[in-house]
């Protein structure tokens, strides 16, 4: 950065979003993926909630892993597979969210579909505690969490996450580190 004037160095890149290639001629190197998706590509399903990664409304997947688009530099997303909530992979979860009325105002509904799909891909049969932990990153709260749990159940019935084995690196499985004590022989 020169001392006299503020520079806005830019690069051209091609984003691969939902399987389509979008050339973006000039992107400031500090632009977030969220800004590019919404402002340049007009893909507005990732919502711009807090822009600091706290609210989770801008959830997308990067190479199959969930990521907050506001925290990903656009230049770092260029050689990766970006999936927004508009992608067909989240269709079933979207219907489940609608059916359970899990997002009455709709602002966080796209992010919720991504989070639910990601959870079910990691953990095919999550209990309520695992669901709460997995969805804790979405702080939209005009629905009570019971509807979210119902949405996860409906999405599971719809087959979300079937065959989506992602390996052990996927993240939390809801397991807690507990002290296991061998019971020994029972006399029955």
């Amino acid at each position: 950065m020169s001392e006299s004037a503020v520079e806005w160095p830019a690069v051209g890149l091609t984003l691969r979003v939902d399987g389509h290639e979008y050339p973006v001629p000039q992107v400031w190197i500090g632009d977030s993926l969220l800004a590019v998706l919404r402002e340049r590509l007009d893909l507005d399903e990732p919502r711009d909630g807090c822009s600091i990664g706290e609210c989770g409304s801008c959830l997308v997947t990067l190479d199959g892993r969930p990521a907050a688009a506001c925290l990903v530099p656009a230049v770092a997303a260029a050689d990766r597979d970006v999936r927004t909530p508009q992608d067909a992979a989240f269709e079933a979860a979207r219907e489940a969210v609608v059916a359970a009325n899990a997002s009455p105002c709709g602002f966080c509904a796209p992010a919720l579909t991504v989070a639910i799909t990601d959870l079910l891909r990691r953990n095919a049969d999550p209990g309520p505690a695992a669901i709460r932990e997995a969805l804790a990153g979405l702080v939209c709260r005009c629905a009570e969490s019971g509807r979210w749990i119902e949405a996860v159940a409906r999405a599971k019935e719809a087959g979300v996450g079937d065959g989506g084995t992602r390996g052990p690196a996927g993240g939390d499985s809801g397991e807690m580190a507990v002290l296991v004590i061998e019971a020994g022989e029972t006399e029955s």
Binding site: M1, S2, V6, E7, P9, I29, G30, S32, A35, S51, I52, G53, C70, L71, V72, P73, V75, A76
Partner: peptide, 19 residues
């Protein structure tokens, strides 16, 4: 990961000349 730098950049607190 971007979780540290990107909020500052987006909010304008940091203006990166080089990334």
């Amino acid at each position: 990961g971007g979780t540290v730098a990107m909020p500052d950049i987006t909010a304008g607190r940091r203006h990166p000349g080089t990334v």
